[in-house]
Computed example of a mutant assay.
Amino acid sequence: MPPPSPASLSNRYILAVDDRPDNLMLLKMMLESAGYRMELADNGPAALAQIQKAQPDLVILDVMMPGMSGYEVTQKIRNDPQLPYIPILLISAHERSSVVKGLDAGADDFIRKPVELDELQARVRSLLRLKQSLDQQENFISCLTHDLRTPLIACDRMVDLVQQGVFGEIPPSVKEALAGVSSSNQNLLQMLNNLLEVYCYEMGEKTLSFIAVDVQALVTEVVTELNPLALEKQLKLTCDWQTEVREWRCDRMELRRVFTNLISNAIKFTDTGSVTVSGTSDPKTLLIEIQDTGVGIAEADQAQIFERFKQTNHNRSGHGLGLHLCQQVMQAHDGELSVRSQPGQGSTFTISLPLSST
């Protein structure tokens, strides 16, 4: 994908924030001459209110402002999960202003006064190119997942109809081939669904519905649903609930997604023995553990299995999205997901749910 041309970056909306009117007018003149649309704010709270009204393509912030500094405004923008990514350029007249502090707060670039026209316009173009590139990537992922799901679902339904004999009797060899097609199609569809969910979480576009959920009943429901997979491998799948705590406020479908992923993974990576789901609690935390007697996970892999697209070296590893998505769900619920494991001795995944949230 070629980089955006300067012409394609014109007419972008830039918010400039400075407590000195003369500085604001200078920035306005410098950037409007390059074709940008400018809005001005003379303090941090006014800038944040303006961003909520109309999200700019770039924010230029003076560092030293009374009441709320540019560092503080930057942090508030970055900590707002409802805002998309907005590039931030910090600007200061003081040599002692900390570049490190600004970048750690979430700024993307730093420029000092007196500002040279060419340098300012070059930095603005650079940040707007970054914004446009990220926006294009997000749109590409969203379109890719949605547009691919439609034909996959249609294909899956057609294969199912053929398998049912709707279009006539089919020989055993064709049935076997169709089963393979159906399985591959389901795997691809699951991967796309996971990719779309991860995208929604990471872009802050996931909407959760928090209600009081009977967690023990939910765990039992998932265990019952997955028990046929365990029986097929002659594994013992059990649920051992040892706490009186049952209800917890959460998004039921998302918590169910986590239980399903972790328990099905435990079955997948266990050839002999058992998978046990247990529930315990202390005054502050509800703990749910999924323990298996499977192949285990090497210590080097444990540090990265919750990262997206990170896979272990085991030949049954998936696409590296499932555990990352589980971690995203837990973080959205202020919970934690961790693992203890030794190769050849099984794994234990622990879900920690804060009871203060119930």
Rank of each mutant, 00 (worst) to 15 (best):
V17F: 01
D18E: 02
D18P: 00
D18C: 04
D19L: 07
D19A: 08
D19R: 00
R20M: 14
R20K: 14
R20I: 15
P21W: 10
P21G: 11
P21Q: 08
P21Y: 11
P21M: 11
D22T: 08
D22C: 05
D22R: 10
N23G: 03
N23Q: 07
L24T: 09
L24D: 09
L24F: 04
M25A: 13
M25S: 15
M25V: 15
M25Q: 14
M25P: 13
L26D: 06
L26W: 01
L26K: 09
L26N: 04
L27Q: 05
L27T: 01
K28L: 15
M29L: 12
M29Y: 14
M29G: 14
M30A: 03
L31Q: 04
E32S: 12
S33P: 04
S33T: 15
S33R: 13
A34L: 12
A34H: 14
Y36K: 00
Y36F: 04
Y36V: 09
Y36N: 05
Y36C: 04
R37M: 12
R37L: 07
R37D: 11
R37S: 12
R37W: 10
M38D: 06
M38I: 12
M38E: 07
E39A: 08
E39I: 04
E39H: 09
L40H: 12
L40S: 12
L40G: 10
A41L: 08
A41T: 01
A41W: 03
A41P: 05
D42K: 03
D42A: 09
D42Q: 06
N43L: 06
G44L: 03
G44H: 07
P45E: 05
P45F: 01
A46D: 09
A46Y: 09
L48G: 00
L48I: 06
A49H: 11
A49K: 15
Q50P: 10
Q50R: 15
Q50A: 14
Q50W: 09
Q50T: 10
Q50N: 12
I51A: 08
I51L: 01
